[in-house]
Design a protein around this nucleic acid. Structure first.
Lengths: 208, 208
DNA sequence: CGAGAATATAAGCAGAATACTCACATTTGG
DNA sequence: CCAAATGTGAGTATTCTGCTTATATTCTCG
């Protein structure tokens, strides 16, 4: 019995050197995100990704050692994107309403390209081999930013962590639901989501 | 070209008449829910469901004409359950805090058996053939109950529909997230989710 | 130019699943 | 005790999927 590590799982089998191959790799990752968002993990096959990207299946395997390495690349790219959105919204000190507005706009923008990618990545995609760590790390930093905002705007300072978790999952739920119904750009929704955030963080949940 | 309807898709190939077969069918549906919740749609195979139920694959096909009929049965059962929870919480007139508490408790209880079944049913499961109607009908009635509550507790009566949608998806998001982390029974979470509902429905999202 | 390196192609393999049938065994009710 | 109801599971036929490989094309750079 070896050390429980089944696969070394290198990120890239070969690093793209010319501009052409960089574009190819980018096209593959982009197509992968599209397939994942449109059809979900169940329909995510390397052949279909290659076809969607407009490259041959051989090209895909020239750079990605296996299917999971591809998913990892997609995940990394998407998480980095989302993380930057929250970091930006929670960065400097600003009025609550402005924070909420920027957060909502950013999250909606991030989900407008591949509406359900985020959820698929969180729910359906296997957390196999090494992505587990990246996954957890993302979640941790993700929450940190939320917690920072919560600490900044909330009077009651208890349970910051739980409050942050509740807030983030509520926002994600609303966005995800809107994405599924193709209603991400409804201005009414943006407004209400903003109000939800403000109301919860203002936080006097009615007495008694 | 015929009428676009590929399959008549009967619900049951044969109706169980004896107590034994009723139990068998029930075991199959229950096992199906478990498999769907534990492994997701990608791992949902009729063979695995039968094995989980402790019956032979032949028994399954004696009552369910095909895979989708089985999923439909699972969906119907689960949706009926969830619907009853909301109906009960939003039934009589009661103080906001009590409504919130009952809703949260009910939703958590409903998700405690098969934590991620609800999301899987909504997101991964194909809406094929005839379940589309049931699906939409469920969503409609689901929202109706939320809307009733919103109309009852909210001062501003505009956008009742949007508010109901935002509220329901926020609640679902929190529950779903908690389910994924096995934190459904954390009392802190129940409390915060209740406060979120109250705060949003109380609804003065800070001025300016 | 031209040679070798980098990149792209797609036919196809080997094996794993999977939905579903069918011929037969067992149990039940009347 | 028998006909109907119920249960069984090996087997089938088909699809799919991840991935290799032998070959073709394009780029870089002296």
């Amino acid at each position: 019995m070896s050390t429980r590590i089944a696969k070394p799982a290198p990120r890239m089998r070969k690093e793209p050197r010319q501009a052409r191959s960089v574009a190819t790799v980018e096209a593959i990752v982009e197509a992968g995100a599209r397939v994942l968002s449109d059809i979900g993990w169940a329909g995510f096959s390397t052949n279909k990704v290659a076809e969607t990207a407009g490259v041959s299946i051989g090209s895909l395997y020239q750079y990605f050692p296996d299917k999971l390495a591809l998913v990892d690349a997609i995940r990394r790219r998407h998480f980095d994107h989302v993380l930057s959105v929250i970091r930006e919204a929670a960065a400097e000190e600003k009025p609550l309403r402005q924070f909420a507005r920027e957060l909502v706009r950013g999250m909606i923008a991030a989900h407008s390209i591949h509406p359900t990618l985020h959820q698929v990545l969180l729910d359906e995609t296997p957390g196999d081999r090494g992505s587990r760590a990246a996954h957890a790390s993302f979640q941790a930093r993700y929450l940190e930013h939320y917690a920072a905002a919560v600490a900044q705007y909330r009077r009651r300072l208890k349970n910051t962590e739980t409050v942050a978790r509740v807030l983030s999952s509520a926002v994600e739920g609303v966005i995800h639901n809107a994405a599924r119904r193709n209603m991400l750009d409804a201005p009414e929704l943006q407004k209400q989501l903003g109000e939800l955030i403000c109301a919860y963080l203002s936080g006097q949940g009615a007495r008694a």
